[in-house]
């Protein structure tokens, strides 16, 4: 008898197999079959949903309330939609302090205001103590379609723009648990990516926010759907000092660490410089960089390759297991 393991939810291969093997065939809907961040419905409406669980609820740079808004907002933005409306559903554990709930509601309100979205419907359920962990949130988002990502137009020579440093969210949450005796100034990058919306008009072909599974997982999935390999350069990938330090100390690869306010953009070579400049003008995009390209010089179709600092090449796989600190 097989049982659901934590890995199924870690955003890696197991989850993709679950979606492709169980969810897609169960409904056979062309809109669902695209498995994009949001579905573009008839009438120029985009629709998405996401659930949020995080321990601890509050961490440097954010909390579960801010995550629940920004995560759904970002799913709409990278699918080519301007976020407009959100639903907000809570599953609360009996015994939760109301002050905690108030704090979370306050941060949902602030985040929604910042992102310019209205919370217009919702639901609340309470489960017995021990049957849930304090607060779970689900949000659905509705937006106005401004562009359709065009994977079919991605060409050899197209550039990959990463909008900032990797792994800050992952690390902030890990350290907020007080584990591993590590302290640093790291803060979650949890933020709305609305400033990327105008990039669609300026020539961006495709975007994806870098969440669970990290950059390597996002780009492996991209590479699998393209006719030519994707190459990124280790030296060009921006990292904050706390993330560099933690990755050395705990042996965790930043390429697989989650963000909550970063995206990767595919841009035509001719427009890449202009798009990069636009991203960098925004405070959230100051450390953006061109980190690689879709190319035909090395590798085979479907592959994601990394040019290492030492000059070697290595194949990157999607995340296959939960990130664990290791000593060896």
């Amino acid at each position: 008898m097989t049982k659901v393991s934590l890995e199924l939810g870690s955003g890696g291969r197991l989850m993709r197999e679950f979606l492709a093997g169980k969810i897609v065939p169960a409904f056979r809907d062309p809109l669902l079959g695209e498995l994009s961040d949001a579905a573009h419905l008839p009438g120029g409406i985009a629709f998405t949903t996401d659930s949020y669980v995080v321990d601890p609820l509050v961490f440097p740079g954010g909390d579960i309330g801010a995550l629940a808004v920004n995560g759904t907002v970002n799913d709409l933005v990278v699918a080519g939609a301007e976020p407009r409306f959100l639903s907000l559903a809570f599953i609360l554990e009996e015994g939760l302090e109301t002050a905690t709930l108030d704090r979370v509601i306050g941060s949902v309100r602030n985040a929604a205001r910042r992102a310019g979205v209205r919370v217009v419907t919702g639901d609340t359920k309470v489960v017995r103590r021990g049957q849930g962990d304090k607060i779970y949130i689900n949000t659905a988002g509705v937006g106005r379609t401004v562009a359709r990502p065009r994977l079919d137009r991605v060409r050899k020579g197209d550039k990959l723009i990463l909008t900032g440093t990797l792994g800050d969210h992952s690390l902030a949450v890990m350290l907020a648990r007080g584990e591993f005796g590590l302290r640093s100034s790291v803060r979650s990058d949890c933020a709305p990516l609305l400033f990327l919306l105008p990039l669609w008009r300026a020539g961006a072909r495709w975007m994806r926010d870098v969440t669970r599974g990290g950059l390597a997982t996002v780009l492996s999935e991209l590479a699998e759907r393209l006719p030519c390999p994707v190459l990124i350069e280790e030296d060009k990938v921006p990292l904050s000092r706390p993330v560099r330090a933690a990755s050395d100390l705990l042996g965790i690869d930043p390429l697989y660490m989650a963000c909550e306010g970063k995206a990767v953009i595919v841009a035509p070579a001719a427009k890449a410089a202009a798009l990069l400049a636009r991203v960098r003008r925004h405070p959230l995009g100051r450390r953006a960089a061109v980190i690689g390209e879709v190319q035909g010089r090395v590798g085979r179709p479907g592959e994601l390759l990394l040019r290492t600092s030492a000059g070697g090449l290595r194949l990157l796989e999607p995340l296959t297991s939960e990130l664990l600190p290791r000593i060896c």
Partner: peptide, 21 residues
């Protein structure tokens, strides 16, 4: 399983020379 297990490393980082021109 292990991050330094030979099988995982070979699986993750490919056979030597893979992807090189």
């Amino acid at each position: 399983v292990s991050y330094e297990g030979a099988c995982l490393i070979h699986f993750k980082y490919g056979p030597a020379g893979r992807g090189r021109t």
